[in-house]
């Protein structure tokens, strides 16, 4: 059973089609990158997969569960780091983890233990009792990353995970993501950063105009070709074709 199965997914917002007949399979244990320029449909795909929005057509499944029919059941199984910054408002990071633990059924002892682990891992121990609304964007991002992995889910969707983080924390997050994948979990990263995708992901799907335009394994690319080459070739080519068609 694949971790993620997408068949002919289409989703539009009014007259704008964000995702069009996208088909994709992600195996368990992959660190999969959904790479694309702004407006390519990455976030929409993630929101459909996590049951936040409904598709217009197509079928999707996460760990065999249909997020359209059972959105809450899917979110029980996965972790989500949303693109839109969603700070836990006036709660402190410690309280936010209490909140996450409460909605995910973790006991207080486990919550305490994992709070300390994450605070140490990402370096925000001294901020645990500061209201999140008063934290810097980087600190808020750390809290949200920790919240996505807090219940140790088998599949995690993370949208631009390294945004606002300093280089030291970025390296810590990258190391953690690799270890998490090596432990048999599946991680899906949506990003427009080619370097991040090339460095981190075992497999990358390039999306543009709502569809998949390339599916590559960075480690298997020829020596004279980089992921950036693939990205520019497929995305620029698509744009050129679009311009020609319009003309």
């Amino acid at each position: 059973m694949p971790a993620i199965q997408i068949d002919d997914l289409t989703r539009a917002y009014g007259d704008v089609t964000a995702v069009e007949e996208l088909s994709l399979t992600v195996a368990e244990g992959e660190l999969f990158g959904l790479l694309g320029p702004n407006g390519a449909g990455k976030t929409t795909t993630m929101e459909v997969l996590t049951g936040q929005i409904a598709p217009d057509s197509g079928q999707v499944a996460v760990l065999g569960v249909d997020p359209v029919a059972e959105p809450t059941a899917v979110r029980e199984l996965v972790g989500v780091l949303p693109e839109k910054e969603s700070p836990p408002s006036f709660m402190t990071p410690r309280e936010y983890f209490d909140f996450v633990g409460s909605v995910r059924g973790l006991d207080d002892e486990t919550v305490d233990e994992r709070t300390d682990t994450w605070a140490e891992r990402l370096g925000f121990a001294e901020k645990l009792d500061t209201m999140a609304t008063d934290l810097s964007r980087g600190q808020q991002q750390k809290v949200m990353i920790a919240g996505a992995f807090f219940h140790e889910p088998a599949v995690v969707f993370i949208d631009e995970p390294l945004a606002n983080l300093d280089p030291i924390v970025q390296e810590r997050v990258k190391r953690f993501l690799r270890e998490y994948r090596e432990a048999g979990n599946t991680v899906v990263i949506t990003t427009h950063d080619v370097d991040v995708a090339a460095e981190l992901c075992s497999r990358v799907g390039v999306v543009h105009g709502g569809g998949l335009v390339a599916d590559v394994r960075p480690s298997e690319l020829p020596a004279d070709e980089t992921l950036l080459d693939v990205f520019l070739d497929r995305v620029d080519a698509t744009v050129e074709r679009g311009v020609a068609a319009d003309d």
Partner: peptide, 29 residues
């Protein structure tokens, strides 16, 4: 930056719902 003593668990135990607890904490703070 405002630092506060943890209150979520105490409030949650009285209110009985994590989202309602968060909502009331937001109003309070």
């Amino acid at each position: 930056a405002r630092t506060v003593a943890p209150a979520f668990r105490r409030w949650r135990d009285r209110v009985g719902d994590p989202v309602a607890t968060k909502t009331l904490l937001d109003v309070h703070r």
